[in-house]
Amino acid sequence: IRCIGVSNRDFVEGMSGGTWVDVVLEHGGCVTVMAQDKPTVDIELVTTTVSNMAEVRSYCYEASISDMASDSRCPTQGEAYLDKQSDTQYVCKRTLVDRGWGNGCGLFGKGSLVTCAKFTCSKKMTGKSIQPENLEYRIMLSVHGSQHSGMIVNDTGYETDENRAKVEVTPNSPRAEATLGGFGSLGLDCEPRTGLDFSDLYYLTMNNKHWLVHKEWFHDIPLPWHAGADTGTPHWNNKEALVEFKDAHAKRQTVVVLGSQEGAVHTALAGALEAEMDGAKGKLFSGHLKCRLKMDKLRLKGVSYSLCTAAFTFTKVPAETLHGTVTVEVQYAGTDGPCKIPVQMAVDMQTLTPVGRLITANPVITESTENSKMMLELDPPFGDSYIVIGVGDKKITHHWHRSGSTIGKAFEATVRGAKRMAVLGDTAWDFGSVGGVFNSLGKGIHQIFGAAFKSLFGGMSWFSQILIGTLLVWLGLNTKNGSISLTCLALGGVMIFLSTAVSA
């Protein structure tokens, strides 16, 4: 259960009878995928790494000078000259100064003066180019299975845990398959586009800190620079940016070097996208990844198990997540596992009318040892309800109150669905055939309105939902006002479609 501690969480529900669903994975976010007769899966884009970055340009932001020398000439005696002028490691300046009897010249006039100092770069920052084909995306998957609280967001041991898996995709191999043991396998067909235009970005490294910066900004930095990788004795261009020549006297000129420019660069980098280094690879934390999940090989585990009949206890007080759902960790005293956990939410304890829904599909106890633990997640209705676990006299209950409203949740879900469709863009549509167009249209309606429909009408039977949709269509056909007619027709059509397409 990876997503319960992530604030940016998206719930995606598969269409009834569908074998695939489109998701948008982004750094700092987590996606929970639910479908009829399929286990619930949490998917998170953990890291995006980039390798084989080529150094484009380096800037010196802290330097020192040494070996200063000057040469001067009297008027009419030609130009002052130093051998160091031809050495690229030196920074030199030529000027004219007033000369006369007082400073060793027989004539009054302008004399030539040249001053040089050896330039040494102490600290530099480097910009590297990123090729999209060198990106690698690491995705962690977790099935809502027989897990306890100690396994949440624990990325170790996934090789031997059938509840978890790690997959890596690249532009050259965008397809992967996550093996989930008894739950089958989940196929991923990803489109490795981060949403960032790397043709316009460089990877900047300064003092063990890293950013993504725009090329134009990078090339306009007014500091000494050299092109390409460091060859040991780089040729620094624009050395004068960190060196200041003071007022010249008759035979000498003082040279000083400016202080470190790291603070000024940090100020200019305010708002830039931060990154990290992992050995020789860069780690990015921006952008998104679009994936199509193929769920035809994914299956529920323990459908044929019998119900657990022994007593359950709450190991922890049920807690609310950031998303309005409830996490419950229970301990089973029996030894008759594997068995299914009898769990439901009810409005009252007399009729036990089921409300809400299970995020953890078909929760089971897989071990036959005593005191096995299991964590599950529920989506309670707004208002008061009861969490009921167990059967008969051994069942345990917990009162729950959820604040908020169904309308607010439906609106929030619609906005999130619209954002998801905007990110998917043209990849969500198939114009290759008439059937493809209608299929894409259905998927689009489901992406945007599916979660809201589930919130508003999830407790009704599909037949009642179709009746309401048919009534809206009838009202649309018999209303003389054009805008009201079109609105009723659209709402009725969407409702009829979703009542037959969205899983219960």
Rank of each mutant, 00 (worst) to 15 (best):
I1A: 01
C3G: 04
C3L: 01
G5V: 06
G5K: 04
R9L: 02
R9H: 06
V12R: 01
E13D: 00
G14C: 05
M15L: 04
G18R: 01
G18C: 01
W20D: 05
V23C: 03
V24S: 02
T40G: 03
T40R: 03
L45E: 09
L45R: 02
T49Y: 12
S51V: 06
M53S: 00
V56E: 12
R57N: 05
S58P: 00
S58M: 04
Y59F: 15
S64H: 15
S64T: 11
S66F: 07
S66M: 04
M68R: 02
S72E: 05
P75F: 08
Q77F: 06
A80W: 11
A80K: 13
K84L: 07
D87S: 15
T88H: 08
Q89K: 05
Q89C: 12
V91I: 15
C92L: 03
C92S: 10
K93D: 07
R94W: 12
L96T: 03
V97S: 06
D98S: 04
R99T: 07
W101Q: 04
W101A: 02
G104K: 05
G104V: 11
F108S: 11
K110H: 12
K110I: 06
G111Y: 05
G111M: 09
K118P: 00
K118E: 09
F119M: 10
F119W: 15
M125W: 09
G127Q: 04
G127P: 00
K128L: 15
K128M: 14
I130Q: 07
E133F: 09
Y137K: 04
R138Y: 05
S142W: 07
S142H: 02
V143C: 05
G145P: 03
S146N: 08
H148G: 05
M151Y: 15
T156A: 14
Y158K: 01
T160F: 01
D161N: 14
K166T: 14
V169E: 03
P171G: 14
A176E: 11
A178R: 02
L180D: 09
G181Q: 07
G182Y: 04
F183D: 09
F183I: 12
F183P: 03
G184S: 02
G187T: 11
T194G: 00
T194S: 09
G195R: 00
L196D: 00
D197E: 09
S199M: 14
S199I: 08
S199Q: 09
S199G: 06
D200V: 01
Y202K: 07
L204W: 11
N207H: 14
K209I: 04
H210F: 07
V213L: 07
H214N: 12
K215T: 09
E216L: 02
E216S: 04
W217I: 08
F218M: 11
P222H: 10
L223C: 11
W225F: 14
H226V: 14
H226K: 00
A227V: 10
A229Y: 08
D230M: 09
T231H: 03
G232Q: 10
W236F: 11
K239L: 02
E240L: 13
L242G: 01
E244T: 13
K246V: 02
D247E: 14
H249S: 12
Q253H: 03
V256T: 00
S260W: 08
H266F: 13
A268F: 13
G271N: 12
L273A: 05
L273Y: 13
M277P: 04
G282V: 14
G282P: 08
G282M: 12
G282L: 07
F285C: 07
F285E: 04
F285L: 12
S286F: 11
D296K: 06
R299G: 11
R299E: 04
V303H: 01
V303A: 14
C308P: 05
A311D: 09
F314R: 00
A319F: 02
H323L: 05
H323F: 10
T327Q: 07
T327P: 08
V330W: 09
A333E: 14
A333D: 00
T335Q: 13
G337T: 12
G337F: 13
P338V: 05
P338A: 02
V343I: 15
Q344A: 09
M345Q: 07
A346S: 07
V347E: 11
V347M: 13
D348T: 14
D348N: 14
M349R: 12
P354H: 09
V355G: 13
A361V: 09
N362V: 02
P363W: 05
P363E: 06
I365F: 02
E367K: 11
N371S: 14
M374F: 03
L376C: 02
E377V: 05
L378Y: 06
G383N: 10
G383Q: 08
D384C: 05
Y386Q: 05
Y386K: 08
I387M: 11
V388K: 01
K394T: 12
I396F: 01
W400P: 08
S403R: 06
S405Q: 07
I407K: 10
A413S: 14
A413G: 00
A413C: 03
G417S: 10
A418T: 08
A418G: 02
M421Q: 07
L424C: 09
A428H: 04
A428E: 01
G432Q: 09
S433R: 00
G435W: 13
V437Q: 05
F438V: 11
N439D: 12
S440Q: 08
L441D: 06
L441V: 14
G442Y: 05
G442P: 03
K443W: 08
Q447I: 14
I448Y: 06
F449E: 13
F449S: 10
G450N: 10
G450V: 07
F453W: 11
F457T: 09
S464A: 08
S464F: 07
I466Q: 09
I466R: 00
I466M: 08
L471Y: 13
S483Q: 15
L486C: 14
L489F: 13
A490V: 14
L491C: 09
L491N: 06
G492K: 09
M495V: 15
I496S: 00
S499R: 02
V502K: 11
A504L: 09
